[in-house]
């Protein structure tokens, strides 16, 4: 699964939670889960708007992977969990090595037409995709006769490492601070 969970429990949150009856604790955790999920959702939206380096470099349409990321909140009397599901989201926590699944190599797009499309998809679309002899990439041909030229589509690789992107998610400290604020509001609302 391409999802992550970040533990943001703090002594202050723990102290607030422990003082409550189970039903109130469940409500508190629900408020915290809602706050964190909204914080993460907003962060991913803003991040997605400005991080399309690969698509921009290739002149391709972004896939919208982050834009479409699913953020789910769950909670009960024992705690709150916010899950973020998006391919590559784990690079928020550190470098992410990817390896081919069910194939002998990764196909890394280097042309706009290949971005967000598999080799099989291009072939089914009528595009000839081949591996030039002795080369470590897949290509197609543009033009005909003497003007025909080989255009690289994908580089083949046994593995690739996505660099750590700590800004992909809010910091743990920011999330903990938001959670604490939600907890304090919940307590104050109950005391009012």
């Amino acid at each position: 699964m391409a999802d992550i969970t970040v533990d943001i429990d703090t002594p202050q949150l723990d102290a607030i939670s422990r003082r409550l009856e189970p039903s109130a604790r469940a409500e508190l955790h629900r408020e915290i889960a809602a706050e964190i999920s909204e914080t993460v959702r907003g962060h991913l939206r803003r991040y997605a708007l400005t991080h399309h380096a690969t698509a921009s470099r290739l002149g391709a349409r972004p896939t919208g992977n982050l834009e479409d990321a699913r953020v789910d909140a769950a909670s009960d009397s024992s705690g709150a969990t916010v899950t973020v599901a998006a391919l590559g989201i784990r690079r928020a926590l550190g470098p992410l090595e990817i390896r081919p699944r069910n194939k002998s190599a990764l196909t890394i797009p280097v042309a706009a037409i290949a971005y967000g499309r598999t080799v099989a998809y291009l072939r089914n679309s009528g595009i000839d995709v081949f591996r030039p002899k002795g080369k470590n990439y897949l290509a197609t041909t543009e033009g005909k006769g003497k003007e025909a030229k080989v255009v690289p589509l994908y580089i083949l690789a046994k593995r690739a490492t996505l660099k750590h992107e700590p800004d992909l998610l809010p910091t743990r400290e920011a999330l903990a601070a938001n959670a604490l604020e939600a907890a304090r509001d919940y307590i104050m609302e109950g005391a009012a």
């Binding site: 992977n65 499309r117 598999t118």
Partner: peptide, 16 residues
């Protein structure tokens, strides 16, 4: 796709 198990390229291929 929603669960992040496949990417858009794979979804397009299999959907086709």
């Amino acid at each position: 796709y929603n669960a992040g198990e496949i990417n858009l390229a794979e979804l397009r291929e299999r959907a086709a």
